[in-house]
Design a protein around this nucleic acid. Structure first.
Lengths: 197, 197
DNA sequence: GTCTATAGAAAGATAGAC
DNA sequence: GTCTATCTTTCTATAGAC
């Protein structure tokens, strides 16, 4: 290889940037914003800490970019579930599936909750959740109080995720997924249906 | 004051210990385990950082004691609600009340979730929540799958708290409390009732 | 019982070589 | 484009005076 003999090492800027983002994602999901340092993120990407700040300016800017990427797509509201005639049942099963201890679907939420000690992280997450998750869910719920009903559905998802996936409450993490889905289905059905008043 | 002229300053051991615990409570609720330092906790108690470690050995031991105190009592399951003939309605209203942005009732949960980045904090919280909150709630739910139903009730509480109180989702934090209670009531009713199968 | 002072590690961020 | 080396701050925890 005569032509590239004096190139510094191997990667280009785009690949390095992506590697840092990916490592930061893993670290923030695992330990939250305050629980991980720039050095650890850099090591996970195979670079040095200095490059992280060079590419993203600061740890906070990096976090903002990671969380924006992770919370930019709805999770329990996929096109498939929407088109289904058994929406409540499908959604209940999906909630149970994505909150499994091994599931990674809700990484964005997990990162958010694990970083909830940081006020700035909560602000960033609020914006994204409202824009991408709540607004879309509320949009498909017809009738009165759609915003509140959508928010309560999100609350149920968030709560199950936290107690099942993060806290590891035995009654949830060791439960039969089918049982959980059966118990959650009527709740979703009640929130999808029009309120009585 | 001739007799106590050479006493160091003012307090006794018990009062100092209590002041540190109280300050630590406030700090951990606000910023989570990783988000606050021993110096800040000490300053809030009017002492120096050294005393914190002298009384509690380490920051982690202090946290363990604080979270044990905060999670030692059930919150949505008070004697009053239990005796009520309209249990579901009362519990729904109570959930809305204790997750108000100004409410302090669920400080223990809030501290837990804000500290969820720390694995150790999650372990400590799991033990307490299972022992004091989940077990008692499951105990009053008759019929099959009581443990799972109780856990889902706790999930709903936790989820609403997080999105309403910590994230500040507008649809929840700016909503009419009565509307929220009306929407939550049938969910609680469905979980209190015996499962169909 | 409480203090000042500090040790030792680790944090975020930057300077400058190559 | 990536590195080593370092600055500055902050952290937990400890030593020793009074």
């Amino acid at each position: 290889m005569p032509e590239s003999a004096n190139k510094p090492r191997k990667r280009n800027a785009a690949a390095t940037r992506e590697a840092i983002l990916r490592s930061a994602h893993e670290c923030f999901v695992r330990s939250g914003y305050d629980g991980v340092g720039v050095r650890e993120i850099a090591a996970g990407a195979g670079v040095t800490a200095m490059l992280v700040n060079r590419y993203f300016g600061s740890k906070e800017s990096l976090f903002a970019e990671v969380i924006a990427r992770d919370l930019d797509a709805p999770t329990i509201l996929t096109p498939e579930t929407l088109a289904s005639p058994t929406l409540a049942r499908d959604m209940a099963r999906l909630i149970v599936a994505v909150t499994d201890s091994q599931a990674r679907t809700l990484d964005g939420f997990q990162m958010t909750f694990r970083s909830a000690g940081s006020t700035r992280a909560a602000e960033l997450a609020k914006e994204q959740i409202e824009r991408f998750h709540h607004q879309r869910l509320a949009g498909v719920l017809s009738g009165d109080k759609a915003a509140e009903r959508a928010a309560i559905i999100l609350s149920l998802v968030a709560g199950v995720q936290i107690l099942r996936q993060m806290i590891g409450l035995d009654a949830l993490s060791k439960a039969d997924p089918d049982v959980l889905a059966q118990l959650i289905e009527p709740l979703i059905a009640a929130l999808i249906a029009l309120p009585k008043a």
